[in-house]
Design a protein around this nucleic acid. Structure first.
Length: 224
DNA sequence: CAGTTGATTCGCT
DNA sequence: GCGAATCAACTGG
């Protein structure tokens, strides 16, 4: 009873507020790591964001994951050590960033979907010239762009000594009721169980996260 | 405000 | 060759 029990540390031996996230933080189950990353900070060079939306990808057994069909040159980093970045290129023009979680060989990762710029605003603004601040980091590709992440950063160790890329724990405790969950976004044919489980996590009442709207196909009127 | 559509390169089959 | 863990512009209300 001497030790004050912090409810936020159930299941994860959490780092203290504001401390750098060690590799052990990422070496847990992806469904534990993903929500625990909300409110945490990611620094890449001069820019720092506070994470407000993430998505879990559960390795080789997850049909929605790039790792589903086994390791390839592109996805190899996912099969490696936790704490490294997996950055991929998509739709012919966008980069998106993940952080690898779990045990080596399991290939699970957390997609970083949205955040809020809290440092290096000058540099961020230069990268997102003419775009409303709210859209700087809303969506995985926008987030990666604002942070300056590209393919060359895939494989970077966020727990390394370099320190150019690093995660830090939230500045204050994130109340569990603020953590919302829902289906993943944009995962086509997400495959059976993956659709049944909410593997997307975000912070309620964050302007950087658009409210989840279930896709409602409107009866399209046929002109003919 | 919200729904639709074109853009454009890479990775894998 | 096809489809993609998306975005920004444009449409109509």
């Amino acid at each position: 009873m001497a030790g004050q029990q912090d409810p936020s540390t159930q299941g994860l031996s959490g780092p203290r507020l504001g401390e750098r996230l060690p590799r052990s933080f990422f070496a847990e189950d992806v469904l534990d790591v993903a929500p625990a990353l909300l409110g945490c900070f990611l620094t890449v060079g001069p820019v720092t964001v506070r994470l407000t939306e993430v998505e879990a990808y559960a390795g080789e057994s997850d049909p929605g994951s790039h790792a589903f069909r086994g390791p390839t040159p592109r996805t190899q980093v996912m099969f490696g050590r936790a704490g490294h970045l997996y950055v991929y290129f998509t739709y012919g023009m966008h980069w998106c960033a993940n952080v690898v979680t779990g045990t080596e060989g399991h290939a699970s990762a957390v997609l970083l979907r949205a955040g809020e710029v809290v440092g290096g605003e000058r540099v961020a603004a230069g990268r997102r010239d003419g775009i409303p601040r709210r859209d700087w980091t809303r969506g995985p590709a926008r987030l990666a762009t604002t942070l300056g992440l590209k393919g060359e950063d895939s494989g970077a160790d966020t727990c390394g000594d370099d320190g150019r890329i690093a995660f830090h724990a939230a500045a204050s405790h994130v109340p569990a009721p603020l953590i919302r969950t829902g289906p993943r976004v944009g995962v086509s044919g997400a495959g059976g169980d993956a659709e049944a489980y909410p593997w997307r996590f975000w912070l309620a009442d964050e302007p950087s996260v658009s409210a989840y709207r279930p896709a409602k196909p409107r009866p399209r009127r046929t002109p003919s």
